[in-house]
Write a protein that binds this DNA or RNA. Structure first.
Lengths: 254, 254
DNA sequence: GGGTCGCATTGACCCAAATCAATCCTGATT
DNA sequence: AATCAGGATTGATTTGGGTCAATGCGACCC
């Protein structure tokens, strides 16, 4: 807790992969950059890896780097003085990590799986932003998408029951997993839970016990099957959507 | 509910006020625009007013205009198929309303007080964005601030008790009111509740009854005084902060 | 003045999820 | 094989806030 230098450079990968070959180009902040811009980005980027549980940034502390999640999952969370914790963001590959336009982020970021980041020195990145409208535009789009996701999440936190929360979370993971595999979310889909029960509780505004009970319930009800404790199979996606309180059939009808 | 043309032009004010004299310049999306940019903005803006309760935009429907709140308060909310509703944004003067980069917003927007908007035709505004980095940059900043606010809100929705939620909401209003009056939030501060009990319940993820009970409790406990049903006075701001579960004294200590 | 409509408050009761408290895995260590 | 540790599950009990229901209080209109 009193490390003088947080974020010790655990594994500073050589810039082995050129941006052009980056697996997450296409969705990341660099997706609209032209060849020339990409070359400049490539020149100033560094990779860094984090082990599960490792702190990536701390609320209220200035950080000199910001960047993109290349591999793994990062949890953003806020903690109250008495220890109550709420996750406020869950970042997957291609998401942008760190607070642009301000050196201090108002949340902690922790690696929940092995994580690889593509980092830029803040000042240098912001200078580049000014000169590269295509990148700034993309960053705006990413931020707007994140805001939309946050608003969906607010509906979940404020108005959904524990069961609906769990089911909604599984829907999100299923969709993301399907997207990653380049298929549409269909029946029989099988995917990993990247979070522990505790992290799921933090995400959903519940306790560990309630998370566990609701998962057990969904299992008994046949909505999901647990291959192992971290792997879920969904026999019928429409049923899961229904339990999640999403309007499975026709939307926005009166 | 089946109006062919939503957003009927109730009162299309002539562009009487030039952008240069706009009361909310300084914080709005146009705050960093230079004289030339401002002239272009001024040429394409229109004002429109909405009565309390009037719908400004509907989830899932394409809208042709986006813009800035000049006067009044706008509530963004999402509704589930069975009527459960959660507010996901509360916009005050200088906030930017509408989903840039996409014609369809995933939430409803309703005027909660008399509202005046400064509107732009979407396509024209986006073209202008491309050509005016200063405005695009400011829009990014505004969006990032909104995202931060949404994350604070998520902590409130997921982890705070009803009493803390009410107190937190009052803190937000008190701060905003103080800011509007150009003073710092101090003891004895008096401000208006812009929302009905029902809207407060939607904001906080509670029921009307709980909102009412908790306000009564805060009143009995002497934390607040009700001048009238819509006007609150805070005798001791530190006490309110404490009840809100905010770390009143020194922050981020171990 | 009396009626009514739309909020707001207050009370009685109930239930979903939190809390408290044992186990139970499963994998790592010796 | 035995021990241990960190999650995960399950059960018993409590409780904060939801639900249902009655009442209050202006503001507005006949």
């Amino acid at each position: 807790m009193t490390t003088t230098k947080r974020q010790s450079v655990r594994s500073l990968l050589p810039a082995g992969v050129h941006c052009i070959d980056c697996p997450i180009r296409g969705r990341a902040v660099c997706s609209q950059a032209n060849a020339e811009d990409l070359e400049r980005l490539n020149a100033i980027k560094t990779y860094r890896s984090f082990a599960p549980g490792q702190e990536i940034l701390a609320a209220g502390e200035a950080t000199e780097t910001i960047g993109t999640v290349v591999e793994g999952v990062v949890a953003l969370s806020k903690t109250m003085f008495d220890g109550r914790r709420q996750m406020v963001g869950l970042m997957f590959p291609s998401d942008f990590l760190g607070r642009p336009c301000s050196p201090i982020a108002p949340y902690d970021a922790v690696a929940v799986t092995p994580v690889k980041l593509c980092l830029f020195v803040r000042a240098r990145f912001e200078r580049l932003l000014m000169e590269t409208p295509a990148i700034e535009r993309r960053l705006l789009e990413i931020t707007l998408d994140e805001l939309d996701a946050a608003r969906d999440w607010m509906l979940l936190l404020g108005r959904k029951s524990a069961r609906e929360k769990i089911a909604s979370f599984l829907v999100i993971l299923a969709r993301r997993s399907a997207q990653a595999k380049n298929v549409t979310a269909a029946d029989g889909l099988c995917f990993e839970l990247p979070l522990t029960r505790e992290a799921m509780a933090d995400y959903l505004g519940l306790t560990i016990e309630t998370v566990s009970r609701q998962i057990s319930h969904l299992k008994k009800a046949g909505v999901i099957r647990l291959i192992d404790i971290r792997t879920v199979q969904v026999p019928d996606f429409a049923v899961l959507l229904d339990v999640a309180g999403e309007d499975a059939d026709g939307g926005m009808v009166v």
